[in-house]
Design a protein around this nucleic acid. Structure first.
Lengths: 239, 239
DNA sequence: GAGTGGTCTAGACCACGCA
DNA sequence: GCGTGGTCTAGACCACTCT
């Protein structure tokens, strides 16, 4: 049936179309997609082919299906979605999402390392968010977050930044964080770490660097989290 | 069709049967399974149901399918399989598998923390493997690996332990590591770290604790890796 | 050519949520 | 009772591998 080298199976084409439409916001997070039958009719493929694609997108946490109700675009607000990207836990395993404090934001020119991480050209401006994060009311993490100004227009005019920024990216800027690359290393607390986190000189801290990627694969956020390692660990399950 | 609460879909039952058979070694790693058609006939289900299961097991890296050839039990020797559990990289992303040196093994009674991690009862004995791992010929990681003696009989009689232990577990003991839980934290180099890795006092190191799980979900290995953090990072992709 | 997996279709029936 | 997703089937045809 096919001897062209650029062949893509039908389900792959349907997959690409749906991802593109979701990325473009054809359906907003939380909204319902047309039913399997409708999608199949519209795209001129069978029930089973559409189903294969919807199942795959559900496995990737991009869609959410509920029997009897419908298929919905996943929201970053939901607990399970949050835990995909937040891996800080107490020793032993209990995961948690720390609350944010002392949040500051400013716009400034990008630096070389930021342009590399975020694949920016020229001297594009960025927003820099700094914040402390608290566990049980005690400072536990220092975070610096870098965002391209072009993707987050007037971000600094928003009054209160929420604790879970990815919901904000999604709801206010139409950017869904779909994947992330993280690099972890150990370091010694700097003076700023010591004063912000209440550590003694020489204390080791866990440094987590993260590049977050949008649905399109484009890097949209670079973040560095400096974690006090006596109370917290980074927990991950590999399967 | 069904109103019993203990209902499991057909494909789930087929899945469980196949996982159990693979775990029991009905087909050894690298061996071919019966064809889809054969499996469907034997189990009295349709082609499509078998296919759904085989696709799932392939996605979980438990099977490997090759068009025109057949379906095979995955081996831990293969590059891709290795990289599922080895996340050490150079800063920037290039992954690597360090070579092992100064490998020592001894049998001894288990300790409390080891019995917890490995879900051992009583005073079951364990093997303790210690080794250095080298990057570019330089010591970079100190590792301690704890294994239940019961699961790895006469492990200490094996002459040379290979660099990639998981292949050994699979080929010599019939244990396939299918998943792992890891916890990362920062620490300060101990005296032993300093002398083994050539670090100065106070140097920060990255400590990775890992419990490896067999196909059955049973914990089979506990390992702690102490990584010098100036040359190496822990890299992970979340999606 | 025979045997394997890969793609795609058409349709049946069930379980769930809601009006 | 209707519309939704969830399960399962039967069968067609294609692409790949080996002999």
């Amino acid at each position: 049936m096919n001897d062209t080298p650029g062949f893509r199976p039908l389900y792959r084409q349907v997959y690409d179309i749906l991802v593109r439409k979701i990325a473009e916001g054809a359906w907003k997070p939380g909204e319902m997609l047309p039913s399997e039958q409708m999608l199949a009719r519209e795209m001129g493929v069978s029930h089973g082919t559409v189903r294969k694609v919807l199942d795959a997108l559900t496995a990737e946490n991009l869609l959410l299906r509920r029997q009897g109700k419908g298929t919905f675009v996943a929201e970053h607000d939901q607990d399970r979605a949050l835990f995909r990207f937040f891996h800080i836990a107490r020793p032993g395993g209990e995961r948690l999402v720390p609350e944010a404090a002392k949040v500051r934001i400013k716009a400034r020119p990008s630096r070389v390392v930021e342009r590399e991480k975020l694949e920016l050209r020229g001297r594009d401006a960025v927003f820099e968010i700094t914040r402390l994060r608290l566990i049980d009311g005690e400072p536990a993490i220092r975070e610096t977050i870098i965002l391209p100004e072009r993707l987050f227009p007037r971000l600094d005019r928003i009054g209160d930044l929420p604790n879970t920024l990815y919901s904000l990216y999604q709801s206010k800027f139409g950017i869904t964080v779909a994947a992330a690359r993280e690099e972890l290393r150990a370091a010694t607390a700097t003076r700023e770490d010591q004063s912000s986190l209440g550590l003694k000189p020489g204390h080791p801290i866990l440094v987590i660097g993260r590049v977050a990627l949008a649905l399109t694969g484009q890097p949209v956020e670079w973040r560095e989290s400096r974690v006090r390692s006596d109370r917290l660990v980074y927990a991950v399950t590999l399967q």
